[in-house]
């Protein structure tokens, strides 16, 4: 085999990725077209009605966009106070020790648990607790889904943040210590400013994961197709409405679901690309 054939084979393999991605966009756009055409792009995004009674079909994505944004935002909120301490534990306080290795193995394993099992655990363990605490009568809802989502994204945010915290140069920290700074001050004034952009970008990527998480949310959010009016109310996210209805849908409803898929795809693609670019930049500096 000469170099030319070799190069062609490698190139052909690399071509698979643009073809798949192009195919994803093409298929989503062509199949979502019917819905956008029927309702209009803007009113599809802003309508909060989702009814599929024959003859009076009307589909709007707003309740699900709202559901996705609410679950993601809450999950991020709940995940920060846990992932930052884990990142500091692994990357700063106990850097390189056995305990740190154990904790990062634990978070790695958490990241490996399939989302359907998170959903089961949320349904059978967390939901009764929520009911017991009288937070919501049926237990399912945006809050319940967000809590489990938060547990799911902690490992991603924590391990990436820890990586950036580890990279903070020692002489910077020592410089601060030699001026009499306490450890807390060093973390606040040296570690966070230096590793800040990296930590921020790891949360961006964690958000990217939470946006598209399907099974957990489907099992816990309560699956109602109306606008959620509070964090304890039930709802649907973009991913969960697709999971719930795709199998039984046809024609306009199918196209509307695919349109929701297209919107979800675009949002996650942008968030992911921004996150990856920020990470690259943070690694270089």
């Amino acid at each position: 085999m000469n170099d030319k054939i070799y190069k062609i084979i490698l190139f052909a393999a690399a071509l698979v990725i643009p073809i798949v991605c192009g195919g994803v966009v093409y298929a989503l756009v062509t199949d979502a077209y019917e819905a956008f055409d029927h309702f209009g792009f803007i009113s599809f995004l802003t309508s909060s009605e989702w009814s599929y009674t024959d003859g009076d079909e009307h589909y709007g994505a707003l309740p699900f966009i709202t559901g996705t944004l609410m679950t993601t935002f809450l999950a991020l909120l709940f995940c920060i106070p846990f992932s930052l301490p884990v990142a500091l534990f692994v990357g700063e306080y106990f850097k390189g020790t056995k305990v740190a290795a154990v904790l990062s193995t634990v978070t790695d394993l958490l990241a490996g648990i399939p989302s359907i099992i998170y959903g089961l655990w949320g349904f059978y363990t967390l939901r009764p607790i929520i009911m017991e605490l009288d937070i919501s009568p049926q237990g399912s809802g945006i809050l319940t889904a967000s809590l489990v989502l938060a547990i799911m994204i902690v490992p991603y945010a924590a391990s990436l943040s820890a990586e950036f915290i580890k990279m903070v140069p020692n002489d910077l920290k020592e410089g601060a210590y030699s001026l009499g700074a306490t450890r807390a001050e060093v973390i606040r004034r040296v570690v966070f400013p230096v590793a800040g952009s990296g930590i921020f970008s790891s949360f961006v990527l964690a958000v990217g994961r939470a946006l598209g998480e399907t099974m957990t949310v489907t099992m816990l959010i309560g699956n109602t197709n109306t606008m959620p009016d509070s964090i304890t109310s039930t709802g649907n996210s973009m991913a969960s409405i697709i999971a719930n209805q795709f199998g039984e849908a046809s024609d306009l409803r199918l196209s509307s679901l695919i349109a929701i898929g297209l919107i979800l795809f675009l949002i996650t693609a942008v968030i992911n690309l921004v996150g990856k670019m920020m990470i690259k930049r943070a690694r270089i500096s």
Partner: peptide, 21 residues
């Protein structure tokens, strides 16, 4: 970049795509 994007694509969307394809 496209590899990163594909890796971040929600699995439910991969399901839709495979359904269509």
């Amino acid at each position: 970049y496209l590899t990163d994007m594909l890796q971040g694509t929600p699995s439910v969307i991969i399901g839709i795509i495979t359904y269509i394809w």
